[in-house]
C-alpha cells in the first residue's frame, strides 16, 4: 500500500488498534524508514502519549520502586556482553580438549562432546532469525531468554539457592491451557552468584511465555511452586 493510502490509519496504528492490512503495511513502512509514514506516525504518537494525561491517578506501592531500582543496582558492569565471549571460549576449550584426547580420559571427552553439542544447539537457537529475545528481571533472578520455534536458550543469574534434592524446571506457558515442562537444570556458582545457561531443544509452538520454578529433584509434570521467573514472549 502507498503512504497516501495509509495516512488515515496513522492514528489507529499509534494506538495499536489498526486492522490488517494497514497494520502490517505501516509497520513495514516504518521498518524501512519511510519518511512520510515515520513523520505521520510520530505526529500521531503525540496524541496517543497525551491520552495518558486522562488517566486516573493511582499511587504505586512503595515496594515497586525498590523492585525496579534493585534490578539495575545488581547489574554487572558489562551486563551480558560476556556471553559471546563465554560461548566462544567454552567452544574453544571443548575443541582443544577433543583435539588432544591423549590428555583427557574418556569420561571427560564424552562430557565435553556433550557440552559441545549443547553449545551447537544453543548457537542454532541464538542464530535463528525468527527467535524471540526477551530479557527479564526480578528480585529473584535476572537474565535473558531466547526462544526459537525449535528450542529455548535461558541465561539466568542470581538464581535462588536450592537444596540438593531440588532442581530448577523450565516451563512453556501457552496462551491458554496447562504449562508444558521443558526440562530441568541446576545453577553453577559464578562470582558468588548462582547462574545457569540452559538449552531446551523441542517445539515451542503456542508458547506465550516461559517460566522457571523450583521443583523436587527429577522435575514435576506440573508446577508445584510459584515461578520465580516469568518472561512473556
Amino acid at each position: 500500500m502507498t503512504c497516501e493510502e495509509l495516512r488515515g490509519d496513522y492514528g489507529a496504528w499509534a494506538l495499536g488498534i489498526a486492522d490488517e492490512p494497514e497494520r502490517s503495511e505501516i509497520a513495514a513502512h516504518l521498518a524501512r524508514e519511510c519518511p512520510a509514514c515515520t513523520a505521520g506516525v510520530r505526529s500521531a504518537m503525540v496524541t496517543t502519549a497525551a491520552m495518558s494525561g486522562a488517566v486516573a491517578e493511582n499511587n504505586p506501592p512503595k515496594r515497586l520502586r525498590r523492585r525496579i531500582v534493585s534490578m539495575v543496582e545488581r547489574e554487572p558492569k558489562r551486563g551480558f556482553a560476556w556471553l559471546p565471549w563465554a560461548i566462544s571460549a567454552a567452544l574453544a576449550i571443548a575443541l582443544v580438549s577433543i583435539a588432544i584426547p591423549g590428555r583427557r580420559d574418556t569420561q571427560a571427552i564424552l562430557a565435553q562432546q556433550r557440552d559441545m553439542a549443547k553449545l551447537n544447539q544453543a548457537l542454532s537457537i541464538l542464530n535463528d532469525p525468527t527467535a524471540r529475545d526477551v530479557t527479564f528481571g526480578d528480585p529473584a533472578a535476572r537474565g535473558r531468554v531466547v526462544v526459537s520455534p525449535s528450542g529455548v536458550v535461558l541465561i539466568a543469574a542470581h538464581l535462588p539457592k536450592i537444596q540438593d534434592n531440588q532442581t530448577f524446571e523450565l516451563w512453556l506457558l501457552p496462551g491458554s491451557g496447562d504449562p508444558k515442562p521443558a526440562g530441568t537444570f541446576r545453577g553453577e556458582t559464578i562470582s558468588n552468584s548462582s547462574s545457569a545457561v540452559y538449552v531446551y531443544q523441542g517445539s515451542t509452538a503456542n508458547a506465550a511465555a516461559v517460566a522457571v520454578t523450583v521443583e523436587p529433584e527429577g522435575g514435576s509434570p506440573h508446577p508445584t511452586t510459584t515461578p520465580f521467573i516469568v518472561s512473556k514472549l
Binding site: 495518558s52 499511587n59 504505586p60 515497586l64 520502586r65 525496579i68 531500582v69
Partner: peptide, 17 residues
C-alpha cells in the same frame, strides 16, 4: 543506577496509573 531512581520518581506513578 541512580538514574533509574530518578526515572521512576519522574514517571513511575504515571506508568503505574
Amino acid at each position: 543506577p541512580e538514574a533509574m531512581k530518578d526515572l521512576y520518581d519522574r514517571y513511575g506513578k504515571l506508568a503505574y496509573s
